[in-house]
Amino acid sequence: MGKLQDLWLDFFQSDRNEESWWERKKALCHDREAEIVRISGRGHTFEEISYANKRNCKYMLHLSFLLKQQDEFIQEEQVIPFEYRMENGEIIEHREISMPMKHRDTPVLTSDSMRGASSERFSYDRRAAVQYAERWWNSYNPVYRTFDVDCTNYVSQCLRAGGAPMRGAPDRGSGWWYRSDNWSYSWAVAHSLRWYLSGSSTGLKGKEMESANELIPGDVICYDFQGDDRWDHNTIVIGKDAYGMPLVNAHTDNSRNRYWSYEDSRAWTPDINYKFFRIGE
């Protein structure tokens, strides 16, 4: 397949979901009338086992795409973990893996961080939510735990940064809340947050919108990749492209300025369903 320095180029040639990921990526850009101006990649090996002339390694690949749409430029980024095998300096096999995460001990949240926990109404600071999403899209705030599947935990942190009030502790099945040693299902589980947003009548709640182009920065998109009513993923809107369509940030895989539809995702299927939530209304 190639040398280690060309690993990110080899990545484009691998088959995913019965179709080349790279072909689907190009097709999505074509449909958006977005030109891929430049692609770059970098990364690092974070685990390695060597024996004789062979190496088994785990690698974190950071891809950057510079897109041009009308007269605007978009820098899209995605971080993808995978493992590869080498023999005699040549890569002979590689495959994607889950993002390597470990639960971490964290400090107890202060009373100030719980501010507004009992509020029935709140003013959502979208700018603060988006700033948080940009600050932590590819890293992890040590105030919170991280999870093997971290997408909903990340979106919840963004909502909290925007002033969303927590309620329901210590009942994990009630409300939306986080403490250093515990958290609600809605805080960290994609399926639970989707239903919390549509069902909550006080504090943090979501107003379901008909289409993606109605969303604004700070809003949330939920994804049911298989179309089986089990919600798998959440993202936060951080901007719009030249045609007014949402660009999102996410964890698992870590992404920035990604087109909202996720047609270039390894999890995407033709049966995908979406929910679009306006936050704070």
Rank of each mutant, 00 (worst) to 15 (best):
G41Y: 11
Y140F: 09
A34P: 02
E72M: 06
Q5G: 09
Q69N: 00
E48V: 15
S139F: 06
E208S: 03
S50P: 00
K26M: 08
A267K: 08
R104G: 02
R55M: 07
C151G: 09
G173D: 10
I92T: 12
M209P: 00
Q226F: 05
N56F: 11
E93S: 08
Y51F: 15
D148H: 11
E96C: 06
G206P: 11
W177Y: 13
E33D: 09
C57I: 15
A27E: 15
D148F: 04
L9Y: 00
G227F: 04
S156Q: 08
D241I: 06
R230L: 13
E76W: 02
C151K: 10
W176Y: 09
E47N: 13
F147V: 02
E76C: 12
E23V: 03
V108L: 12
S123C: 00
E87F: 02
G168P: 03
S180V: 12
P165N: 01
I91R: 06
W137N: 09
E18L: 07
S192H: 08
R24P: 03
G162A: 10
D171S: 09
D264H: 13
Q70P: 01
R266K: 07
A164E: 03
D171G: 01
D264M: 11
Y178W: 13
A133N: 03
G203M: 10
K102M: 09
C57N: 15
I49K: 15
G280S: 05
R135C: 01
F82D: 01
E18D: 08
K26H: 03
G173W: 04
G218I: 05
T269S: 15
N257F: 01
F73W: 08
D241N: 11
G206I: 10
L109K: 10
C29S: 09
N249H: 12
R258A: 05
H30G: 00
Y140A: 02
W183F: 06
G239E: 11
W268N: 14
N153M: 15
S64I: 03
F73S: 10
A242K: 11
Y84C: 01
E83V: 01
W177K: 13
D253N: 15
L247T: 11
D219K: 01
S40N: 12
E33G: 06
A129V: 07
